[in-house]
Design a binder for these strands. Structure first.
Lengths: 184, 184
DNA sequence: CCCTTTACATACGCTGCCGTATGGTTTCAT
DNA sequence: ATGAAACCATACGGCAGCGTATGTAAAGGG
C-alpha cells in the first residue's frame, strides 16, 4: 500500500468535476467528496473557506479554460474553413473531456440551471465564443450571425445527444459545417 | 381574501415544474414546495407516498406529453416541408412552455444529469423523436440520418441558448431547415 | 534535530429536510 | 344533519451535511 500523499487544491477541484459529471451539482458537498478522496473534511476546510467558495473556485477554473482551450487550438489552423472543420473533431479531443473521460461541458451547463453565478459565467462564455465564430464567418463572407448561432447550437445539442446515446458528433458536425461552407 | 382552495396532485406537479425551472432539481423537496404553495407537507404526503414517487410522477407526466405534444401539432400540416418549417416556430409556442412561461425542457435535460431515471426517459424520448424526424426526412428523399440528428441537436442547442440570452430561436431554426431542404 | 508551517483527523452543535403519527377540518352523499 | 372519506396541520425522531474548534501528524528550513 502506497502511503497516500497529501492533497492539493487541484485534487479537490478535480474530484469536484468528476462528481459534477457523475452526480450533478448535488455531488458538490464537502463530506461526500472527502469520502471519495479517502480523507476527511478537515482537509477540505483547510483548502477552502466553505463550500460556496469551493464551487466558486471550480467555476473560475472552468471559466479560465473554457474559451482559451478551444480557440488556442483552432488558431493553429491557418484558414477559416479549416478551423471550422476542426471544430467538429475537437469536441472528441482532450480539451473538452473531463478527467474521467466524460465531457464536462454538459454538466456545467446543467449546473448553471440551479446556480445563478454559474449561469452568469456560461452566458459570458457563450457570448465570447459566439462573437469569435461570427468574426470568423464574416471573414469568409458569411455575415448573417444566425449561422454562427447555428454552428454553436449544433455543438451544444450534439454534445448533449452524444453524452446520452454514445454516438459520435464529429460526423453530423462536419456535415453542418460543410453545409454552411457551401454558402461561402 | 379568497379562501384558498384545496390542492390537487396536479397543483403539486405544477409547482414542481416551476421549482425545477427556477431552482433546479434541488428545488424538488416537500417542505420548500409546501411553503411555496402556502400549505404544509401534510398535504404533500397525502397526495404522494414520498419524494421519490413525487419525482416519478413529474417524470411520467413529462414523458407522456413530451412526444405527443409536438407530433400531434405537426401532424396538422399536410406536407413534410411545412411540418419541418413549423418546428422552428412551435418551440416558441405553448407546447414547450412551462406554467410560468419559461421552457421546461432544458430544465428536464439538466435534471437528467443527476438522476438516472430521468436520463433513461430523456434518452427514450430523444430516440423516439429522432426516428420520427428520420422518417419524415426520408419521405422527401433525405435518407442520411445525420440530418435528422442535426435538426434535433439544433433545437436542443438553440433552446438552451435562448433560455440564457433571451434571443428567439425561430429565426436560426428556420434557416437551418431551409438549408437542409435545399438538399431535397 | 527542533521548531514552525502545512496538512489532516475528530468531535461538536446547528440546520434543513425526511417520513410518520396523530388529530383536526372540510366536503359530499345519503 | 351526520357519518365517512378526503384533505390538511402539527409535532416528533432521525439523518446528512455544514462550519468550527481543537488536537495531531508530516515536511522542510535553520
Amino acid at each position: 500500500m502506497t502511503k497516500t500523499p497529501r492533497l492539493t487544491k487541484q485534487d479537490w477541484l478535480r474530484a469536484g468535476f468528476i462528481a459534477l459529471v457523475e452526480r450533478g451539482p448535488s455531488g458538490l458537498k464537502a463530506e461526500p467528496l472527502a469520502r471519495q478522496l479517502k480523507t476527511t473534511k478537515g482537509s477540505f476546510y483547510w483548502h477552502f473557506r466553505d463550500v460556496s467558495q469551493y464551487r466558486g473556485a471550480m467555476l473560475a477554473y472552468w471559466q479560465q479554460s473554457a474559451f482559451s482551450n478551444i480557440v488556442e487550438h483552432l488558431e493553429r489552423e491557418p484558414s477559416v474553413p479549416k478551423r471550422l472543420r476542426l471544430l467538429g473533431q475537437i469536441a472528441t479531443g482532450a480539451a473538452w473531456q473531463g478527467y474521467n473521460g466524460a465531457p464536462i461541458e454538459p454538466a456545467i451547463r446543467a449546473w448553471s440551471r440551479s446556480d445563478a453565478q454559474v449561469a452568469q459565467v456560461v452566458l459570458q462564455i457563450d457570448e465570447h465564443r459566439l462573437r469569435y465564430l461570427e468574426t470568423m464567418l464574416t471573414e469568409i463572407g458569411i455575415s448573417n450571425p444566425e449561422f454562427a448561432r447555428l454552428i454553436y447550437a449544433g455543438l451544444i445539442g450534439l454534445e448533449d445527444l452524444s453524452s446520452r446515446d454514445g454516438q459520435a458528433h464529429a460526423g453530423p458536425m462536419g456535415t453542418l459545417i460543410d453545409l454552411i461552407l457551401t454558402l461561402e
